[in-house]
Simulated assay, not measured.
Amino acid sequence: MPASDGPVLTFGDQRYAIQDLPDTAKAAIQNLQWADAQIRHHEEALRVSTYARQAMVQELTTILATVPALP
């Protein structure tokens, strides 16, 4: 039976001792962790951009309130 003293990967409904996985599986895990970090980074950048856009829309709304619209 494989050792389970170290970190464990739960994938689907199975558990695996990471130390017993082949190097290709360990590399895949690292790649997935990197991809997850990139997704979190881009989600945060999107939230910041969305907030900035909302602020610019509000600013433009305030400015245009003082400008007469075309007939």
Rank of each mutant, 00 (worst) to 15 (best):
D20P: 01
L46E: 09
Q14V: 05
D20W: 06
Q54V: 07
I63P: 00
Q30C: 07
A3H: 01
N31Q: 13
V48T: 14
Y51L: 07
D5C: 03
T50S: 07
Y51T: 14
W34P: 00
A65K: 13
E43A: 08
P71E: 15
A25C: 15
M56V: 06
L64M: 15
Y16L: 10
M56L: 09
Q30A: 15
D13E: 14
E59D: 12
A35E: 09
D20F: 02
L21W: 03
G12F: 04
I63K: 08
V48P: 06
A69N: 13
V57L: 11
A3D: 04
L21V: 04
A55S: 14
I39P: 06
L64H: 12
L60F: 14
F11E: 04
P22D: 10
A37M: 11
H41S: 11
V67C: 08
L21F: 01
V8E: 01
Q58T: 08
L32N: 10
A69P: 08
W34H: 09
S49C: 10
A52S: 12
E44W: 09
I63S: 07
Q30R: 15
T66F: 14
A69T: 14
A17L: 00
Q38V: 09
Y16C: 00
A35G: 01
S4T: 05
A52P: 00
Y51V: 08
